[in-house]
Design a protein around this nucleic acid. Structure first.
Length: 571
RNA sequence: GCGCCUGUAGCUCAAUUGGACAGAGCGUCAGCCUCCGGAGCUGAAGGCUGUGGGUUCGAUCCCCGCCAGGCGCACCA
């Protein structure tokens, strides 16, 4: 990666300047500059090293610049400000480097994950509940990370963890039996199941006896009761169909969809093991793991009614995944409310000897401007309604652009644009912040939005076509990249940073960094496109520019693909 | 009460994990179709980064106090 190439050169320069100081300068880094005035990369380490080297930062920087035989990629290096070292890359080296990336199917992404396996765990939707907009974030963020890890060479196993085995089933079954409406169940089963769930839940809150009955239904299911099992199967089937349909529209795909029920036969053994290893013991009728050493509150692994809960399932899941996949890490993409839960579960897994990395990549709750929404308050926006509206607005735009598309082509483009807008709106935000849902933001079609990126990509396709049409036989790939305008160089620098951006975004669990990068790239491209002539330029210059267009298209396309967003050639 | 998180332009969000003058979009205002797609481009206005201290060459970022909001804290998941 570019940053690493520069950093290696810097470290060598430090060692050359201070051969006998006993430091290896491994901490020295090259940071991308914010401001082109400071070159392409900057080194901030002279200030930090001032104490160890017993010299003023600017003197250190001057010594490094003076002594340093920088690698061939560096055009010039100079000292600035409090002791920064600024580095500017050679134009022709940069051009060749970008040409090299473009020729690589992975666009220069490092293969850091080769031979390693990651299990991704998505917060699954719950049985018998329609999906609302809060169900977007986990698979959306998770899939983007998944794609990035795959590009980095990891083998990824993604698993959508369907909540199909908890008390809510008891609540639903009681509601279904006492308040269910046959006709409604046949016409709109998911809505009806949600309705009876809400009603039964209300009753359970007010009436402990009812709650108790709900729990008993769950225990009956878990004990294999035939009637409950049959109903449960029906509910699971309905839920899966709903999830497949809606997530399918969003392009989410999982290697595995294992509900909690998949693990239910392992739960007793898991609890037994926890008890026999002294991790959990009986307390107030329940079996509880006490985690004082980790300074965490106790975690119940078996309820006093004999039922198991979420913690038990998650522990069993970890043990099973370690056995089946032997992953380097398991990444959970769940919302912020689960932080304590996962800390407890991870602590227990550690005590059981699990050595795989366990990481909770949490994200902030989605809320409405007025309030946090909840199924029980009926204060929700259905995910499907959002997708419908997104496609509707995009279709209006596509139809108005009058590019002469046939009707189904319009609809397909509108689908890609609308869904892309929704996904991008979510991914472009730092996952770890509250997301206030507004239609305006979720459906933005201009400015910092998915469609802006798609638009930039589509315009490039036109440029490439026009060039091929008017200048047949002049393959841009056969011409060297040369730059004369400042914006061309800006574009090259950005293209060269694709690999490190992907690596950072994946490791940091922040697809938003990739989204930011792509937006910045598209903006730079648009400036280039709008202010520099391509087809009217002289021979050679023209092909170099068209070639840069093509490389930009490739990076935009691949970047959007990583975010799970379609990049149509025409829209 | 204890713990986790958030507070940045009118609004929605960034800020390369402690770096240089805090940047974008939307909205507002003023411009740009001789040209490859105007879902675009160029420019302007807009900030005591919630608040008070501290740490250091340097703080939106780290530490402490306060204010405001969100979330969690044995038998929901």
């Amino acid at each position: 990666m570019l940053g690493e190439i520069v950093a290696d050169g810097l470290r060598a320069a430090f060692r050359a300047a201070f051969p006998d100081c006993g430091l290896d300068f491994a901490s020295v880094r090259a940071a991308a500059t914010q401001n082109p005035e400071f070159g392409d990369y900057q080194c901030n380490d002279c200030m930090t090293l001032a104490r160890a080297l017993k010299a003023a930062p600017r003197k250190i920087a001057a010594a490094v610049v003076g002594a340093g035989r920088f690698p061939e990629c560096v055009d010039k290096a100079w000292v600035a400000g409090a002791g920064f070292i600024n580095l500017k890359l050679k134009d022709d080296w940069l051009a060749a480097h970008v040409a090299g990336l473009a020729g690589d199917p992975r666009l220069g992404a490092p293969a850091a994950g080769t031979g390693k396996r990651i299990v991704m765990d998505y917060g699954g939707p719950n049985i018998t509940k329609p999906l609302h907009i809060g169900h977007l974030r986990s698979p959306n963020i998770g899939s983007a990370l998944d794609n990035m890890f795959r590009l980095l060479g990891y083998e990824v196993v993604s698993d959508s963890h369907l909540g199909d085995w908890g008390t809510q089933f008891g609540v639903t079954i009681m509601g279904y039996r006492h308040f269910g409406d046959k006709a409604a169940m046949e016409a709109r089963p998911m809505e009806e199941l949600e309705r009876v769930y809400v009603r039964s839940y209300e009753k359970a809150k007010a009436d402990p006896a009812w709650m108790d009955l709900c729990r008993r239904e769950l225990v009956k299911l878990q004990a294999g009761d035939a009637a409950n099992l049959a109903l449960w199967k029906e509910f699971v089937e309905l839920t899966r169909r709903e999830v497949d349909r809606v997530y399918g529209r969003l392009g989410f795909r999982f290697d595995l969809v294992r509900g909690e029920s998949f693990y239910h036969e392992m739960l007793q053994a898991t609890v037994d093991r926890l008890v026999s290893e002294g991790i959990a013991r009986e307390s107030e009728g329940a079996i509880v793991a006490f985690l004082e050493e980790e300074k965490l509150p106790p975690a119940i692994v078996r309820k006093s009614d004999g039922g198991f809960n979420y913690a038990t399932t998650d522990i069993a899941t970890i043990l099973h995944r370690v056995e089946e996949f032997d992953p380097e890490q398991i990444i959970y993409v769940h919302d912020e409310r689960q932080q304590l839960h996962f800390r407890q579960v991870f602590a227990i897994a550690r005590r059981l000897g699990v050595t795989a990395g366990l990481r909770h990549v949490w994200f902030g709750l989605m809320r409405l401007p007025e309030a946090t929404f909840s199924t029980r308050e009926g204060n929700v926006v259905r995910l499907e309604a959002l997708l419908d509206e997104a496609e509707r607005r995009a279709l209006a735009l596509v139809a108005a652009s009058s590019r002469g598309f046939a009707e189904d082509a319009q609809r397909e483009i509108a689908r890609q644009v609308g869904i892309g807008a929704v996904k991008y709106a979510d991914l472009s935000q730092n996952p770890q912040s509250l997301v206030t849902f507004t239609w305006e933001k979720a459906l933005a079609l201009e400015g910092n939005s998915g469609p802006y990126l798609q638009y930039a990509r589509a315009r490039i396709a036109s440029v490439l076509d026009k060039h091929a049409e008017r200048f047949p036989g002049r393959d841009p790939e056969a011409f060297p990249i040369v730059t004369s305008e400042a914006v061309e160089r800006d574009l090259l620098v950005r293209l060269a940073r694709f690999p490190e951006t992907v690596a950072q975004a994946a490791c940091g669990g922040k697809p938003s960094q990739l989204a930011d990068y792509l937006y910045d790239l598209a903006q730079t491209y648009s400036t280039f496109y709008q202010n520099v002539p391509f087809l009217k330029s002289p021979d050679g210059i023209r092909e170099a520019r068209v070639r840069m267009c093509g490389i930009t298209a490739r990076v935009l396309e691949r970047g959007l693909e990583l975010l799970g967003i379609a990049a149509p050639k025409r829209l």
